[in-house]
Design a protein around this nucleic acid. Structure first.
Lengths: 274, 274
DNA sequence: GGCCCAAATTGATGAACATCAATTACCAGA
DNA sequence: TCTGGTAATTGATGTTCATCAATTTGGGCC
C-alpha cells in the first residue's frame, strides 16, 4: 500500500509515497457531502474503510479513458479536469472544485472509465475503495438511495449539457455561462473566470480563438473583458441574448450544499461527473 | 382514477379512459427489465402497486419539459421520442423502443422533467407511481442498487453522447451510427433505419438536408441508400472513416438484456433516458 | 528590469453547417 | 388509380466555426 502507481502525462510513473493519514477536518468535509450527509456512523465507517488521502502535483493524470476504476475519488483541494478524447482531439467535460466526488457511475457499475481525469493544480484527493462502496450500498438502503440521488443529479447535469450543445450556438453558450457565473458569484457586476480561457473554450465546445471572438461580439451586450475579470455592464441586454432557462441552466448558487436534502442536483463547473 | 389528463399536441385534452387491467405477459416483460429482474416478489408487488397501463395514439405528448413527474414510465409497445427544446427549436435526445423505462432520474429526485416525451406510434405504456418507487427504494437496498445501476448506465450513455457531439463531425456521427446499427441488427450488410430520417437527423444533431448530404458523401465509403434500407458494401472503408471506439460507441447487441447482471449500460436508441 | 514561455488575441482563409427555395418521392385515403 | 400532404432530396447562398499564421499580452524567474 506504500507503492502507488500514478499516471503522469503520457507515461506511467511509479512513485513511493506514503498514503496520508487523514485529518479529522477532511473527514468532516467528506461527511458533509450530499452523498454521505445522511449516512449513519457505521455506514460512513464502512465506506471510508481503507480510504487514503493522496496529494498530486498539477498536471497529473489520475485516470485515463478506458482505465478500470478501483476508487471513488473525492477532490478535497485543488482542481481536477475531466476530459474525453477521440482521434488526437480532446474536450473538457467538466472542471471540478472541492468538495466533489467523481467517477461514481463507473464505480457503481465496476466498469471502465469513459473519461480521463487530470489535476489542473496541485490537488488533494481522497480515494475510497470502490468495492467497499458497492458492498455498503447493498447493506444500507439509505446509502444506496443517496447514491441514486447523486447519480440522478449527475444525469440531469448531462441532459442539460446535451441540450446546451445541440440547441445553442457558441456565443449563446458563452452568454449563458456568464449569467450562471454571475449568479453563482453573488450577483456582482464583475465576475472572475474560474479557469484559463482555453479550458473554458473546451468546456463550451469551441476553440480558444472563437471564444475570444465570442467575447468581443458580446461587447454589444455590455460585456467587458480584462484578463480573467469580466464585467457585465448591461445584464438585461445579455439576458435577452442568452435567454436562460431552468430547463438547461442550473443557476444554483454554490452555497446550496448547506441546504437540507431536497437536493439541488449535482454540481461543480458545468454538468458532469463520471 | 378514471379521469386521465393527457397532453395531445400543443393543447391539453382530458379524456375519459379506463386504465387497462394488466396482462400477466406485460407484467412478465416488466419483471424481466434490468431494473426489476432481481427484485423480490414483495418488492415487485410494492413498486407496481397502483400501476396502470395506458394506450396512447401516435403523436401524443406524454410529458412536457418542466412538468412535474409523478410516474415512472415503462414503454411496453410502440415508440417514444424524448426531446428538448429552446427558443422554438427542438432536438431529439432519444428514441425509445420496448421495453424501456424513462424519466427515472426525475422520479428519483421528485423533480421536474428536463425533457418532453411524445409517442411516435400508437403506444402502450405502463405507469408506475413515483412515490411508490421512492418508498420501495428506501425499504429494499437491493432495489435501490438496481436503480443506481440503471442510472449509472443512463449516465454513461449521456457521457458517450456528449463526447460524440463535441468530438465528431456530422458525417462521422452518421458513419458511427450506421456501424452501431449494423452490429445491433446482426451484422447483415443491409440495415433498416429504425425511424424517419428527419428524426434520425435530429438525434444526430443535424438538419434533414445535411443528413441527406452526409449520406451521399458516405457513398465514397460504399454506403448505398434506398429509402429506409441502407447497404454497407464496404464496411472496412466505413470503419476507417468512423473510427468507432468503445469509449464512445455502445455496440452492444439488443439481446444483451438476456445476459446475467453485469449490466451492459442503458439502452434504446442513442443514449438517454431521463 | 529584462527575459522566456505560454496564453490570448487578431486577421485571413476554408470547411462545415444552416437556411431558403424548389423539386421529387412516397404513402394513405378517397 | 388518382390525389393530397408530408418526407426526402437537391441546389444556391450565407452564417458559423475551425484552422493556420502572426502578434501581443501577461506571469514567473533569474
Amino acid at each position: 500500500m506504500g507503492l502507488i502507481s500514478v499516471k503522469a502525462g503520457a507515461t506511467v510513473v511509479t512513485q513511493l509515497e506514503l498514503p496520508m493519514t487523514m485529518r479529522q477536518s477532511d473527514l468532516d468535509r467528506v461527511k458533509a457531502l450530499p452523498l454521505f450527509r445522511d449516512a449513519s456512523p457505521e455506514t460512513f465507517r464502512d465506506v471510508t474503510a481503507g480510504a487514503f488521502l493522496q496529494r498530486f502535483p498539477a498536471g497529473t493524470t489520475l485516470l485515463l479513458e478506458g482505465d478500470t476504476v478501483d476508487f471513488l475519488y473525492v477532490l478535497l483541494d485543488g482542481i481536477v479536469e475531466l476530459q474525453g478524447s477521440w482521434k488526437e482531439k480532446d474536450t473538457t467535460l467538466a472542471v471540478l472544485r472541492p468538495v466533489s466526488t467523481f467517477i461514481l457511475a463507473a464505480v457503481v457499475l465496476d466498469a471502465d472509465s469513459l473519461m480521463s481525469a487530470r489535476t489542473l493544480e496541485r490537488s488533494e484527493i481522497l480515494m475510497l475503495s470502490g468495492q467497499a462502496l458497492r458492498r455498503t450500498m447493498h447493506q444500507d438502503a439509505e446509502f444506496a438511495c443517496a447514491v441514486a440521488h447523486e447519480l440522478s443529479g449527475c444525469y440531469r447535469g448531462l441532459v442539460r449539457a446535451v441540450k446546451n450543445h445541440k440547441l445553442r450556438g457558441g456565443t449563446e453558450r458563452l452568454a449563458n455561462y456568464l449569467i450562471t457565473q454571475r449568479i453563482r458569484q453573488g450577483m456582482k457586476d464583475t465576475i472572475t473566470l474560474p479557469h484559463e480561457k482555453r479550458i473554458l473554450a473546451s468546456l463550451l465546445g469551441m476553440t480558444p480563438e472563437n471564444l475570444s471572438r465570442a467575447f468581443s461580439s458580446l461587447s454589444a451586450q455590455g460585456v467587458v473583458v480584462h484578463g480573467p475579470e469580466v464585467t457585465l455592464t448591461r445584464p438585461e441586454a445579455l439576458e435577452r441574448l442568452a435567454r436562460p432557462t431552468p430547463l438547461i441552466d442550473n443557476h444554483m448558487p454554490p452555497q446550496s450544499r448547506l441546504l437540507g436534502k431536497g437536493e439541488v442536483e449535482s454540481w461543480s463547473d458545468s454538468p458532469g461527473y463520471a
